[in-house]
């Protein structure tokens, strides 16, 4: 039996693979964290002063800060109001013509939003969900590195919001084909929402796939997009309401040039609003969730950028 204490001391000199961390990356994340902490301190004061009226105030006041390109066809902005102040960080809008709305969002009579919750006048358009583009989404569990980066990105950009503990969830009504997600609840004065991440594959080049999925969610306005030097394309569309209640969803996809795709979704409800049936992964919605999404566009895109920086 070797001297175990000496063996441990020698671990300081163990052979290491080359580091993949650049100083610039750490500085960038560090500055973002400083920014979020400062914004959190300011927003915290606002939340305490505003008290119970915070949510109502949020919905009325935010549309003025919406990017003009989305205004006419996307309805009111319903992302979080805990956004740090500063220059807009939205990615450019893709140069595609908007879809023509076929109507305006109306909740189901069987499960309408609760009392006092304003029904959002969001234009409705056809969803162009081509199942040939992205395949195997959620077939495998989220890779540990992506999960770790996802959790930390949320933690860093949350500001006054409090991220819950990350959970892995396997959802779906077909036990033979469950979909794996990593799920993080995010709570602030407005209530609890959530973000999820899942991974899959896609066909074509990143730009081709992004173009084909430009109107994936039934969004009327063209999506926002960032194209990176390594060919990775990040794309997210506007907030989509759906049943039951007034469920809000915003979807982002990150198309990497190696055929790997990551989907990040933020929702206005969290795990407390769900009851998962462990037998088949299906879930029931019990609560209507919060009035807005938990993150602003700025925060949402920051999470996407952080996840996109993981080297697969």
């Amino acid at each position: 039996m070797p001297d175990i204490e000496e063996e441990l001391r020698a671990m300081a000199d163990v052979t290491a693979p080359p580091s993949t961390t650049a100083l610039d990356d750490v500085l960038r994340r560090g500055r973002r964290r400083v920014y979020a902490l400062r914004a959190g301190a300011v927003a915290g004061v606002v939340a305490v002063v505003a008290g119970a009226g915070f949510t109502a105030f949020a919905l009325r006041s935010v549309p003025t800060s919406a990017p003009p390109a989305d205004g006419p066809v996307d309805g009111p902005v319903v992302t979080s109001t805990t956004t740090p102040s500063g220059p807009p960080a939205w990615w450019p809008v893709v140069a595609l013509p908007p879809q023509t709305p076929y109507g305006t969002w109306q909740p189901a009579s069987s499960a309408p939003p609760g009392p006092g919750r304003e029904v959002l006048a969001v234009p409705q358009c056809d969803s162009h969900w081509d199942e040939q583009v992205v395949v195997d989404l959620g077939r495998d569990t989220v890779t540990p590195t992506a999960a770790e980066r996802f959790d930390r990105a949320i933690d860093e950009v949350a500001g006054v919001a409090v991220p819950g503990e990350p959970q892995t969830a396997t959802l779906g009504t077909d036990p033979a084909q469950p979909t794996h997600h990593r799920w993080v609840d995010v709570t602030d004065a407005g209530g609890t929402g959530s973000l999820t991440i899942s991974e899959g594959r896609y066909s074509g080049t990143p730009l081709e796939a992004a173009d084909r999925e430009a109107f994936l969610s039934g969004n009327c306005a063209p999506p926002h997009r960032q194209v990176r030097d390594d060919g990775t394309v990040l794309q997210y569309s506007s907030v989509i309401p759906s049943e039951p209640f007034q469920s809000l969803t915003q979807r982002m996809r990150v198309y990497r040039s190696n055929g790997h795709v990551v989907e990040i979704v933020q929702r206005n409800f969290g795990t407390r609003d769900l009851r998962v049936n462990d037998a088949d992964g299906s879930f029931e919605r019990l609560g209507q969730g919060r009035a807005t999404l938990p993150f602003s566009d700025r925060q949402f895109t920051a999470v996407g950028e952080e996840v996109a920086s993981v080297v697969w």
């Binding site: 300081a12 693979p17 961390t21 750490v26 500085l27 560090g30 964290r33 590195t145 980066r149």
Partner: peptide, 28 residues
């Protein structure tokens, strides 16, 4: 820091993440 993290977690990828995250927090 990365080597210390490796001793803790036994995985170089995670060690890199732990060390990087620690420096981000220290920067703040």
């Amino acid at each position: 820091a990365r080597r210390s993290a490796y001793a803790l977690c036994g995985n170089w990828s995670e060690a890199e993440e732990i060390a990087q995250h620690a420096f981000v927090k220290v920067y703040a």
